[in-house]
Write a protein that binds this DNA or RNA. Structure first.
Length: 105
DNA sequence: CCCCTGACTGTCG
DNA sequence: CCGACAGCCAGGG
């Protein structure tokens, strides 16, 4: 532990920390977009940075619960991606997510 | 410190 | 639906 007082909850230790927390807050069956994660992390517009974090595989991140704003899965792994989403209860058709949790028209 | 790339996003045609 | 253009943010060389 250390003597570090803190880690308060405050501002962030970095983008990955904030994004990681947001991703960790997701639950099985819940799907979100890169922009949402970035905005929740406190970095609106940093959707690309979120993709970098997931692509880097840093932290214990549920990258499969993250899709693009169009509901599309990850390019190059959509089969694996769709497979994981289905395993958690998310419906996927043609490489696209069907019905996300919450979201009003 | 500068330049480039990237699992993105939204608009236009 | 898809392709092209521009904008935003962060990391690596």
């Amino acid at each position: 532990m250390g003597a570090s007082p803190a880690t308060p909850a405050g501002p962030e230790d970095g983008f990955d920390a904030a994004a990681g927390r947001v991703l960790a807050a997701l639950t099985p069956g819940d799907v979100t977009t890169y922009g949402e994660v970035a905005a929740e992390a406190g970095y609106p517009g940093a959707a690309r940075s979120v993709g970098r974090l997931l692509a880097s595989g840093k932290g214990n991140v549920a990258w499969w619960r993250v899709v693009t704003a169009s509901g599309r899965l990850v390019p190059g792994n959509e089969e694996e991606h769709a497979r994981r989403l289905r395993a958690e209860g998310t419906e996927v058709v043609h490489g696209r997510v069907v019905a996300r949790t919450c979201r009003e028209p």
